[in-house]
Write a protein that binds this DNA or RNA. Structure first.
Lengths: 340, 340
DNA sequence: TATGGCTATGTAACTGGTTACATGGCCAAT
DNA sequence: ATTGGCCATGTAACCAGTTACATAGCCATA
């Protein structure tokens, strides 16, 4: 503890003094070493090493105007859905020399705006936000600061920010069409919360449009395995047997499969289960899950790529719509024949 | 708007000029508004609003020496194991006014050191690292920069950094003891890669110590559902039927359960399955998984708490060992009687 | 010998904030 | 009328870097 607090980190001038050169030369060694004489450079580098000099990020940023920091605002990390995306965002961004700050919002627009403000204060040069629905405060902040921002998980070319995502309506429609093709007539639709989550809203709307009102019943639950279990129980209790379950999210489908199994209901014999996401684990449920693939990793990569280019080269990205497609596995099958 | 394209972001002096006050007054409005005359303050605030002034994070940092940035170095985000922890780290840190930069390392010490260097360059005030095994370059960096760092996922009070974690050996031992108590004699141990992952090494070592060499066979695979499937297939093919499977990770156990099911092997009737982690989904596998609970969220919270206090108040944390305990569900049962 | 070009380096002015210290106005108590 | 204190504000130094511009030394050419 003797000089623990007293030990000020050495700065450029300390180095220049110790190496008997000017601050400009030290700065050159750091930024454009080619232009410095070999011997001088070696001497300066030795002093830097000896003193343990580390250039101040803040001072660098103040001059260059660059922090190399980007921020991602996502609903949650406690779900493969977003952690896959964030993971590939992070991996892509480091290739462009950026660091990623993650902030979770719990689908709460106010919280999102607060965190966005903090990130701006910290100096992020760009944002990735989730979905299209945001508070006025956030839109205001983005307008004022002009921070490049791309929205993910939802494709909409008319949106005021560039979007990199998929067509949530089309994804839901594909699942519905699959169930219709198989002849299903009593369908429980299990979805996550609709407030603050425009992806879910879009999927539910598309489902309402695709299926006739007499064919489907909607149940809301938490987007988690437990949420799926709970929603299914309510569904079965309230509206008797179904011949198909459509989950808006694979994690909920995991819970649904588990609970059906526990109830002794056979999948797909007694009931078909279809879902949206296609998580890595969905191939290995029992039975393997029929689900609409959402390209989470690809979306992360694209969004990161776009944002990096925007921040770096000032090229505003054009919206990108990624492909979604139904992956048919073994959790769905045709209704054999109307047995009443 | 004389020069529309040269839209430089307004700075303190721009504001002070427009509000006809000194820069000091504007700064006071920002930092200690109480000491500024009400009218003056209102005028300055109006100008700030009008010009859309946002204080430069870099300039603030250069003076205060505070970036309010912390970094987390974790193996991967593509797994609930770490995303749960990171999630609670993030949530805890925002309460302390910090932002979190995440960097994934793929259990590669070199990559970890590189990313750590980048984070220091960016100006993080503290680190969370995973495990105890790191490259010399990282240790060197931490020593030179004196950046507060806590290590998670592995409790060791003798380590040179404060650790917040659990006793990986004890966790493995608990699972082994459970299998022994149930009378299991042919145990397949399925674990993730050992290079660069000291948690896995500790678990495997403890397992070797707890079980006699004639009772267990070790198989390595990727820490994923698919990795579990693959490892189990190799295990069964190479060393014939087992009466128990011990997975070092729940996600691998998910794959194991799936594959056993597909093979027509009954769990726990034909074979017991025990694991380590207790992920949220583990309660809902079929059958529900017996597993050693690792307190991922609690660990995240504790580590974040400790690090925040260290950075904030210069209180070096004391190592914390979190409790692990076996959660017995339905994937294990006693060997009924030696039937040969 | 004078000129020009090149390389390596130094000087000092910047970046955008914070803050110690100085100043000036006003009012109350001597 | 003088002094003292408080409040609000301004001036300028400072943080730790970058960089435009100046300069000095050296060598080749005319």
């Amino acid at each position: 503890m003797a000089r623990g607090s007293k030990k000020k980190r050495p700065n450029l001038r300390d180095v220049s003094r110790a190496a008997d050169v000017s601050v400009a030369t030290v700065s050159r060694v750091l930024n454009t070493p080619q232009v410095v004489n070999k011997d001088t450079r070696a001497r300066v580098e030795a002093v830097i090493e000896e003193l343990g000099f580390v250039r101040s990020a803040a001072a660098f940023a103040i001059n260059s105007g660059r922090t190399r920091l980007l921020g991602a605002l996502i609903p949650t990390l406690e779900s493969d859905i977003f952690s896959l995306t964030i993971s590939s965002i992070e991996q892509t961004l480091v290739d462009h020399g950026f660091s990623l700050i993650v902030a979770t919002t719990d689908d709460d627009p106010e919280k999102e705006a607060r965190k966005a403000k903090e990130l701006v204060d910290v100096g992020v040069e760009g944002f990735i936000v989730t979905g299209l629905e945001h508070s006025d405060a956030l839109h205001d902040l983005l307008r004022r600061t002009q921070v490049p921002t791309v929205a993910i998980s939802y494709f909409d070319e008319t949106y005021h920010l560039p979007t990199v995502g998929y067509d949530n309506r089309m994804a839901a429609r594909a699942a519905c069409q699959h169930l219709k093709d198989l002849g299903h007539k009593r369908i429980a639709v299990i979805h996550g919360a609709l407030t603050g989550n425009d992806r879910n809203v879009a999927r539910v709307e598309a489902t309402r449009a695709a299926l006739s009102a007499e064919q489907c019943w909607f149940f809301e639950g938490a987007i988690s395995v437990a949420g799926g279990v709970d929603a299914l129980r309510r569904a079965v209790a309230d509206h008797g047997p179904f011949d198909a379950i459509f989950c808006m999210s694979d994690v909920m489908a995991f819970g649904v499969l588990h609970e059906l199994h526990r109830m002794g209901v056979s999948v797909p014999g007694d009931v078909s289960v279809v879902s949206i996401h296609n998580l890595p684990a969905s191939e290995f449920t029992y039975p393997p899950l029929t689900t609409v693939n959402l390209p989470a990793r690809q979306m992360g990569r694209c969004a990161a790529e776009c944002l990096a280019r925007w921040v770096e080269d000032d090229i505003r990205p054009t919206p990108i719509c990624l492909d979604t497609h139904l992956v048919v596995r073994s959790s769905t099958q045709a209704v054999p024949k109307r047995t009443g």
